[in-house]
Each structure stands twice: as C-alpha cells, then as structure tokens.
C-alpha cells in the first residue's frame, strides 16, 4: 500500500512495512507518516499489529521489508532512540527502587544534563514531588502511569511513543494523563498514541491510523476523515411534526434520507451533504424550524464500520476491507 503524503521532516515515517512473526503475516505493507507536532492516534483491535508497529518504531524488532525512520534515522541507531520517549504496555518501572531512583537510572541512560534538577522538575509535573523517595511498589496504578510518563519525557524527547497510556486508570487518572499530553503538545512534542479509548483519541489526536489484520484501513486527518466518511447529517427540530408529503418531497428533491421522530427530522446524506439547502427547503414548505444540530460520524462510528468491513473482507477471502480509504 502506498504511503500517504509526508514531508521530509516527518517525525516518524513508515513505508511498506512487512513483518512475519511465528509464521503469521503481522504487518502487511503498513505505511504512514507522523508529522512534527502531531498527536497521532493508532487504533485497532487486539492483535491488529499495533504493538508490533510500536516495537519496530523503537528498534526492538526489525521489519522484514520496508523502511522506518524516527526523527529521520533508523530506530536501530542509538542516536534515533535518544530522541524518543516511550511508554510501553507494561510500565517497566522497578518496584524495589524509589521513583527518584527509577528516573535517575533513565537520566543516566539518556545522559541528561543536571539530572537532579530535571528529575525534580518532571516529578513535580507528574504531581509526585512529595512521593519521589517512596518505593514504586507502594504506588497506585495512576501514580505508576504518571511516573512512567514522567520517565518518558525526562530527556525532553522530540517524539513520544505511548502505548495505552490511560489503560487501567480511573477517570481522574485519565484526565490527569490527558492534561499531561496536551501540555506536551503545546510544547511541540510529537506524540504517537496507541489506544482502544476512541473518545480519548477523538479528544486528543489530530490525525489517526487504523490498523486491522496488519493492514491500514483508515489514515489521515481526523476531521476530514469524519467529514468524508460518507455519513453526514443533522437533526432538525420543528415546531410541529413534518407532514408525510413534505418528508417524501425532501427525500426525492434534496436526495437525502430523512426520518421523522415526533417534532424532529433526522436527515443524512453523502459526503456532499449540506444542511442549509435542507433547512431552506423545509422553510419554503412552511415548516417552522426550532433548532438544527449538525451530525457527523464520530470516531467510534468510523471505527465500528471499518472494522466490520475489514472483517467482512477477511471472511470473503482476505481482501483488504476499507484499505482504500487512505
């Protein structure tokens, strides 16, 4: 599958990545680019190939075919990984060491200047300044996750790769992690985020990739993907129920689907759907409009539909489902 448009300065760039593991084709021509300053979401069901993709981006696995660059270098090079921060599925913290010692270890591995000052700064940023000398084994799941993110940003990386950063956190913890990510984005850090939490992805990410069965099913700017997904519409609330003949005329003349629910009409159409002509049509027919609410596919709607298409495609002989959406 060909790569989407990407600038030479892409923070992460994958082209035609193939990877076989245990006789299974885990990644089948995966390619995408994460631009500098993006919060880029990676979606997909379990076993889709997300973790393998992350491992390749971190130089832990080698692609069988294709090219990967992170900050313009091969991630197998130490110099590339020196500019990347990460949080893997398991936090990888040392339980018998204090938060400070955990951070001190990584500060030394990354050669952070003034490690003491920087550790104090990131501990403070993670809200753990007063618990820094406690053993990590005494930490709650949320505290561990915040510490792991603090560790990931300790060396002020250009790129941050996070695998399920809010998994297992209570709502307060999730909000805290999201706040940390938004702060990072404001500082210009590029974030690659893998998550099952579609709501979180929609809130945080400006661009996404959806991987299913080792292939890319959806890739691009989140707003344009939702807008161009073929499902756009509006709920038009009226002062009285719209008569049947007006509804039929609306369907026929405006070329939209329209359903009445009491004193409201739900209209939807294809990618070229526009609300004003529909409203104008109804007004022309003497309908009094109370309120109009635009509707667009959420990321969840997109995900569910594309996953279903991919499954149907796989059942029909392994053809790429919605791969052509890229």
């Amino acid at each position: 599958m060909a790569m989407g448009p990407a600038s030479a300065s892409s923070a992460i760039r994958l082209e035609g990545i193939h990877k076989h593991l245990s006789g299974r084709h885990v990644l089948d021509g995966v390619g995408f680019a994460v631009e500098q300053g993006d919060i880029f979401g990676c979606l997909g069901p379990n076993g889709a190939g997300k973790t393998t993709t992350i491992r390749i981006m971190l130089g832990l696995l080698r692609a069988d075919a294709g090219t990967v660059t992170v900050t313009g270098r091969d991630p197998a090079e130490d110099a590339a990984r020196a500019r990347v921060g990460f949080l893997l599925e398991a936090d990888g913290l040392y339980d018998d060491l204090s938060a400070w010692d955990n951070l001190d270890y990584y500060a030394r591995l990354y050669g952070v200047r003034d490690p003491g000052g920087r550790i104090a700064e990131v501990l403070d940023g993670a809200g753990l300044a007063d618990r820094g000398r406690d053993k990590v084994s005494a930490y709650s799941k949320g505290m561990r996750q915040r510490l792991a993110i603090a560790r990931a940003v300790l060396h002020s990386p250009d790129v941050l790769i996070l695998d399920e950063p809010t998994a297992g956190l209570d709502p307060g913890g999730q909000v805290e992690v999201r706040r940390m990510l938004q702060d990072l984005r404001e500082r210009g850090t590029t974030v690659f985020l893998s998550s099952h939490n579609l709501d979180e992805m929609q809130r945080l990410c400006n661009r996404i990739v959806l991987i299913h069965g080792g292939r890319i099913r959806l890739y691009g700017d989140l707003e344009s993907l939702a807008a161009g997904s073929g499902r756009r519409g509006a709920v038009i609330e009226t002062s009285a129920p719209v008569p049947d003949e007006v509804l039929a005329a609306l369907r026929q003349e405006a070329g939209v689907s329209a359903d009445r629910d009491g004193a409201a009409v739900t209209v939807s159409g294809g990618a070229s759907f526009e609300v004003p002509p529909v409203v104008a049509f109804l007004v022309q027919k003497g309908i009094r409009i109370e309120q109009v609410t635009k509707q667009q596919d959420s990321l969840e709607d997109l995900y569910v539909r594309i996953e279903a298409e991919a499954r149907a495609g796989a059942a029909a002989g392994g053809a790429p489902g919605a791969g052509g959406r890229r």
Partner: peptide, 14 residues
C-alpha cells in the same frame, strides 16, 4: 517477566 527489560532495550543502549 516484569517487561522492564523491553523498556531498557528501547533506550539508546545497545
């Protein structure tokens, strides 16, 4: 087992 080795390998250490 704790997967801290995987994290260590993702740092700039061979």
């Amino acid at each position: 087992q704790k997967r801290s080795l995987e994290s260590l390998m993702a740092t700039p250490v061979s």
